[in-house]
Design a protein around this nucleic acid. Structure first.
Length: 538
DNA sequence: AGTTTCATATGG
DNA sequence: CTCGCCATATGAAACT
């Protein structure tokens, strides 16, 4: 373990943490890390991967392992019920010494556009500060209920941060020409000044004809659309596609087509392409642990919501291929593993968990089995799922109790945690974001949140470990990790390496299962496809 | 005029 | 009274 502390002007300090030598000041921190990495690839302890690692990558250096103090701090604060407090090394040090805690700096990308005048240089921490905070973190971790699991989580989160930086740099292969052809096909010619393309204008005309009113309505305006239907004697609660589909009127299919195309145009049209795709790659910024449950978030480009049709533009380089691996039915499998419900676990030993569930407890009705299980994990209490939920409760009492317990803990003001120990934020943090619900409804909403947190968060951990193991397995190959979306990973590799990558993915999934759950009958099967184009996966 | 919220879409 | 989780992004509508 070696601490790497960046200082100004590219300089820094390297300090072995195991007493194998004195700290050394270096003029070129990146070069110093490179030479040590080549020697024995230690685990690097540094303040922030997001801050430092891009500088290493820029100079062609990758490292094997790290300990990200900022991510560790965020996890530990959560465990201590202090979710949301500043997580930077500077703030951790201030807390440790009882000094005023500085707020975290705003995210880089939002400030680098403007306000460069005000850029606050990240203060250079002293070696003593880093060591003190690191030791304190180790002690807090050791004092946690399950130190081993928490250590695993911090290691996985740190490895994830390495992947995130690498993936953001390498980018997802993106054929702008294919994307443009797709847009032309769907939307027609773009208008020169960035206005709506031909087909949207035509559809808007046809919508107005179908409404037959004298004043022209704008289909993008829900209020105007509602009024137009009102004039026809049709009252709608909203203009959502599923609501529109329930009424029988010639304008409906045109309106739905308009909405679909308008969405593509505004969210993934020409301006998106110009803004986000450079040199044949789409490079979003990934944010490990950016979602409360531990899932990743992204900043910019909507990388985690790429519509299926637009995935046609994701094409492997010539002679290369995409290996797309998707963990099927991940969350119910996680529930089977964490709850210790042997009956559910034996269903989760099957390739199709819902089918196994159906034949055991739902008279072979797979879709009923599915809504029951999803309903239990999301806290559904009404609708058609009710009788199915009763069957679920009867047949799988331990799994049922697991999510019920999480819900009750949340409803009564408690905190829940994932399998590896990531802790949910307290209600005081989340309800601010989720609106003004009153009384009992608020506590039930809180229960649904904590109920789902334990499952979604543990699923995120499994996926994170898979990602980390896969990254390790691909070291020294040409293959590059290019995309990660909750339970799905995409590897871009020379066509001849596809078989090797497939095997590596399966091994990584297996290692993730064992690292989290040890010997469990629950399987976590991966659907793997080898495709030239992302849209052809599955 | 600039900022915040709402409505609706996308993804898991 | 109502009742399904986690997100991001856009444009319209509402607000300051």
């Amino acid at each position: 373990m070696i601490a790497a502390i960046p200082a100004s002007g590219g300089r820094g300090v390297l300090a072995p943490l195991d007493g194998t030598g004195p700290p050394v000041e270096v003029a070129d921190l990146v070069a110093a890390i490179a030479s040590r990495e080549a020697r024995d690839a230690p685990r690097w302890v540094w303040p922030s991967t997001a801050e430092l690692y891009p500088r290493l990558l820029e100079r062609g250096l990758r490292v094997e392992r790290c300990y990200d103090m900022e991510l560790a701090e965020a996890i530990l604060l959560g465990v201590e019920g202090r979710w949301g407090e500043p997580r930077s090394l500077a703030s951790a040090a201030a807390r440790l010494h009882g000094e005023p805690v500085p707020p975290d700096p705003p995210p880089r990308s939002s400030i680098d556009a403007e306000a460069t005048l005000f850029t606050v240089e990240t203060p250079v921490p002293s070696l003593a500060t880093l060591l003190a905070v690191y030791e304190h973190q180790r002690a807090r971790c050791a004092a946690a209920p399950s130190p081993g699991r928490l250590n695993t989580l911090i290691a996985a989160e740190s490895a994830g941060a390495l992947v995130a930086a690498e993936m953001g740099r390498v980018g997802l292969p993106w054929r702008a020409d294919v994307h443009r052809a797709l847009l032309l096909d769907l939307l027609g010619e773009p208008s020169p000044m960035g206005g709506p393309p031909r087909k949207l204008i035509e559809l808007a005309d046809r919508i107005n004809d179908a409404f037959g009113s004298t004043t022209r309505i704008h289909p993008d305006s829900p209020a105007e659309v509602l009024r137009a239907f009102e004039r026809l004697g049709i009252t709608l609660a909203n203009t959502r596609a599923w609501e529109l589909r329930r009424i029988d009127h010639p304008v409906v299919p045109i309106l739905i087509e308009y909405k679909e195309l308008a969405r593509i145009w505004s969210a993934h049209g020409w301006s998106w392409l110009d803004q986000w795709v450079k040199d044949g790659r789409f490079r979003p910024e990934y944010i490990p642990g950016g979602v409360v449950s531990g899932r990743w978030a992204t900043r910019g480009g909507g990388a985690l919501q790429i519509p299926k049709v637009v995935r046609k533009a994701v094409v492997a380089d010539p002679g290369w291929t995409l290996v797309v691996a998707d963990a099927g039915q991940l969350e119910p499998r996680v529930l089977a593993a964490v709850s210790g419900d042997r009956r559910l676990a034996s269903a989760a030993a099957a390739g199709d968990l819902y089918a196994a569930l159906a034949s055991e407890a739902f008279g072979g009705d797979r879709s009923r089995a599915k809504v029951a299980l999803l309903g239990a994990m999301y806290g559904q209490t009404g609708g058609q799922a009710v009788p199915a939920l009763a069957a679920l409760r009867r047949f799988y009492p331990l799994a049922w109790d697991y999510v019920e317990q999480a819900a009750r803990t949340g409803e009564t003001g408690g905190l829940v945690h994932t399998w590896l120990g990531r802790t949910c934020p307290p209600a005081s943090v989340t309800f601010i974001a989720s609106g003004y619900e009153e009384g009992g409804s608020r506590s039930r909403a809180r229960g649904r949140f904590t109920r789902n947190f334990v499952i979604q968060g543990t699923a995120a951990e499994w996926a994170l470990v898979l990602l980390a193991r896969l990254r390790a397995a691909l070291v020294g190959t040409a293959a590059e990790l290019v995309f990660f979306q909750h339970d799905e990973v995409v590897v871009h590799c020379p066509a001849g390496d596809a078989q090797l990558v497939i095997e590596a993915v399966h091994r990584a999934g297996d290692e993730a299962r064992r690292l989290l759950f040890g010997e469990t009958p629950v399987r976590f099967p991966l659907d793997v496809s080898v495709v030239e184009c992302y849209a052809d996966a599955k």
